[in-house]
Amino acid sequence: MSDMPLQILLTNDDGIDAPGLAAMREELTAVGEVTVIAPAENQSGVGRARNEFAVRREHPWGYALDGTPADCTAYGLRGLDTDFDIVVSGINDGPNAGNYVVGRSGTVGAGIEAAFLGTPAIAVSSYHARDFFCHPPEEYDFSRPARIACALLERVAGTSVFGDVGLLNVNAPIDVPQPRMRVTEPLADYDQHVDHHESTTLLPDGDTDRQLDDDETLVRLRDVSWPETVGYENPFPPRDEHRERYPVGTDRRAMVDGEVSVSPLSVHHGHAESQTLAGIVDSLSEFVE
């Protein structure tokens, strides 16, 4: 690492007033100059969505932006004069593990935006080995995940790590003393549960006034992002079944074992080879006029 202090851009998806961001900032100020640009309100689950316009407000730590985490990253890296060395996103008050969940995470989305703009990034999420979700966040202490993420940042900054990967996705327990840290890969384990409501006047998002027409059906889509768990219940029990389902080296197995999961991600949607597809395309060439 250089003798010059690191220039760190800190953002999140839980909003600029989130306890996880405050804990992360406190740790990072010991190793570098920290500029916070975070959403003014909660932006969980927005992935890497972007907006063309966003209102910026001054904040004692930097700026609050009426936008997504990816907006905050894009603005920080291209809208300020600071040449940032790294982007840190988090700490999220809940895990982002499993490739489907990771792909939809606003915490990870901020890091993906950084990678596309050529800046290393670490996305940091927390989990509780017993409660799973750290909610409400005010009741949890995020200092351990913050210390873990800060130590990792100090070790990887200035190395060749980010020449090989675009983003590090970290899930750290808040309640496990001296947890083991493991390099992992996001595991594909996902399904969707669909409910049909044939007759109702109660629609989601506060729309309670519109009566459904005769040809309309209210459809509810609910994630099954852990086995047999619909919604946001604690998916860990029974733990032995999850150990059998998730092999060592996956991000979800690390969480079942109370470990720190560090997943190096490639974010540029790399090219995949398929000889079968090449043959099909070649055979169809004569039909294209």
Results as ranks from 00 to 15, higher is better:
Met1Gln: 07
Leu9Ser: 04
Ile16Ser: 03
Leu21Asp: 01
Ala22Ser: 11
Val34Phe: 01
Thr35Ser: 05
Ala38Trp: 07
Glu41Ile: 14
Arg56Ser: 11
Glu58Thr: 06
His59Gln: 09
His59Arg: 08
Tyr63Phe: 15
Pro69Arg: 00
Cys72Pro: 02
Tyr75Met: 08
Leu77Glu: 06
Leu77Ile: 08
Leu80Phe: 08
Leu80Ile: 03
Thr82Leu: 02
Asp85Ser: 09
Ile91Trp: 04
Asn92Ser: 15
Asn92Cys: 15
Pro95Lys: 05
Asn96Thr: 15
Asn96Pro: 00
Val102Glu: 05
Gly103Asp: 05
Gly103Glu: 09
Thr107Leu: 03
Thr107Pro: 08
Val108Phe: 01
Gly109Phe: 03
Gly111Leu: 09
Phe116Tyr: 14
Thr119Arg: 12
Ala121Lys: 03
Tyr127Val: 06
Tyr127Arg: 09
Arg130Ile: 12
Phe133Lys: 12
Phe142Asn: 07
Phe142Ser: 02
Arg144Pro: 07
Cys150Gly: 02
Ser160Asn: 11
Ser160Ile: 02
Val161Pro: 03
Phe162Gln: 06
Val165His: 13
Asn169Ser: 15
Asn171Pro: 01
Asn171Phe: 03
Met181Pro: 01
Glu185Ala: 10
Pro186Lys: 07
Asp191Asn: 15
Gln192Ala: 10
Leu203Ser: 02
Pro204Ala: 12
Leu212Lys: 04
Asp214His: 10
Asp223Cys: 06
Glu228Gly: 04
Tyr232Val: 14
Tyr232Ile: 12
Glu241Thr: 10
Glu241Lys: 08
Arg252Thr: 09
Val256Gln: 01
Asp257Asn: 09
Ala272Tyr: 12
Gln275Trp: 11
Asp282Lys: 13
Asp282Glu: 15
Ser283Phe: 04
Leu284His: 08
Phe287Ala: 10
Phe287Trp: 13
Val288Phe: 10
Glu289Ala: 12
Glu289Met: 04
